[in-house]
């Protein structure tokens, strides 16, 4: 009962955020310097053509009317036409989306076990050399530009050694795994250090908690206390951080997709920006934001399910 009302409350809170998101993506198009119609039609367009397109796009109507029809269209899944591909933006997004999702899942499968392993080793050896070593690794991981590493990896492991394909997505699950291995590893190399730093801090904070001292006083073995209490209590803060990081990951996938020529949403985004395909930019921005909100919501609900205290 309590958890249902919590979910209801969270859903209600999301409504204004969704309205805000729609406003931002609507006004994004308004930020185009100059006249978007002339931009699309080119400088030599006749006055009639400009007026016709202005009417077709509804730009002759007041702003609020334009916004309302934008909302109406969006709710029915109409995100406009791509100026370059001449197909609906939604179709384009659905076509590119699975590759990015696959990549993000792949990264998590690689980065999460590595993170947990490194953070546990570091926390259990706080201040000693394994902790220092992991700290150095994680600082280095944060400073190395992913695209630079990607370029070097693609040429060395891909072209020189020929171990991995350096572009595309492949056919079938095994081929996907093979094609996306280098992109996923390059991304994990900056994600895992960030997560490790935070999980390590959470673990050490728990180590100093009163209940740990109480468990020790009862004579429980250290390993048991660590597994049963400390690790469990560190899951929640890390889970919340993971929600934030997934949003970051979605953004970070853009660069990796370009380096390894993976035809995903990020590559589509950059292509649209370079080709001034405004409705695709607008639609993608909206889709990315809704995905982020959905992930945050899912993690909140999951957190509340694990730990009922957070829903109070």
């Amino acid at each position: 009962m309590n958890s249902i009302s919590f979910i209801g409350r969270r859903l209600l809170q999301i409504v204004p955020v969704l309205i805000g998101i729609s406003l931002v993506s609507f006004f994004l198009i308004m930020m185009i310097p100059g006249d978007p119609v002339r931009m699309v039609l080119g400088p030599r367009a006749t006055e009639e053509a400009v007026t016709a397109m202005r009417q077709e796009w509804g730009l002759d109507r007041p702003i609020w009317a334009q916004y309302l029809s934008y909302i109406g269209n969006t709710l029915t899944g109409d995100l406009g036409q791509s100026l370059k591909f001449r197909i609906p933006v939604l179709d384009l997004v659905l076509q590119y989306l699975p590759r990015t999702l696959f990549l993000v899942a792949y990264v998590l499968v690689i980065a999460l076990p590595a993170t947990i392993l490194m953070a546990v080793i570091a926390a259990r050896n706080e201040g000693r050399w394994p902790d220092q070593l992991i700290r150095v690794i994680s600082i280095l991981g944060m400073t190395i530009p992913v695209f630079w590493l990607g370029v070097l990896f693609a040429r060395y492991f891909g072209v020189k050694l020929g171990w991995f394909p350096v572009s595309g997505y492949g056919d079938g699950f095994v081929e996907h795994l093979h094609h996306l291995f280098l992109p996923a590893v390059s991304t994990s190399l900056w994600l895992a250090p960030l997560l490790t730093r935070n999980l390590r801090a959470a673990l050490i904070e728990q180590t100093e908690a009163d209940y740990v001292a109480a468990s020790r006083a009862k004579g429980l073995p250290e390993g048991y206390i660590f597994r049963r209490h400390i690790l469990r209590n560190s899951v929640l803060p890390t889970l919340n951080l993971l929600g934030v990081m997934i949003a970051f990951l979605i953004g970070g996938s853009v660069v990796v997709e370009i380096v390894y020529a993976v035809p995903g949403l990020g590559a589509l985004m950059v292509g649209s920006v370079l080709g001034r395909d405004y409705f695709v930019i607008q639609g993608l921005t909206l889709v990315y934001a809704i995905a982020t909100v959905a992930i945050t919501l899912a993690i909140d609900i999951f957190t509340a399910a694990i730990d009922p205290r957070t829903s109070e």
């Binding site: 998101i21 930020m31 930019i281 982020t292």
Partner: peptide
């Protein structure tokens, strides 16, 4: 609510690189 890098790219995309 927007992924940081995506919103930056979108704004740069609209304003021009």
């Amino acid at each position: 609510a927007f992924p940081f890098f995506i919103l930056v790219i979108a704004i740069v995309g609209v304003l021009g690189p």
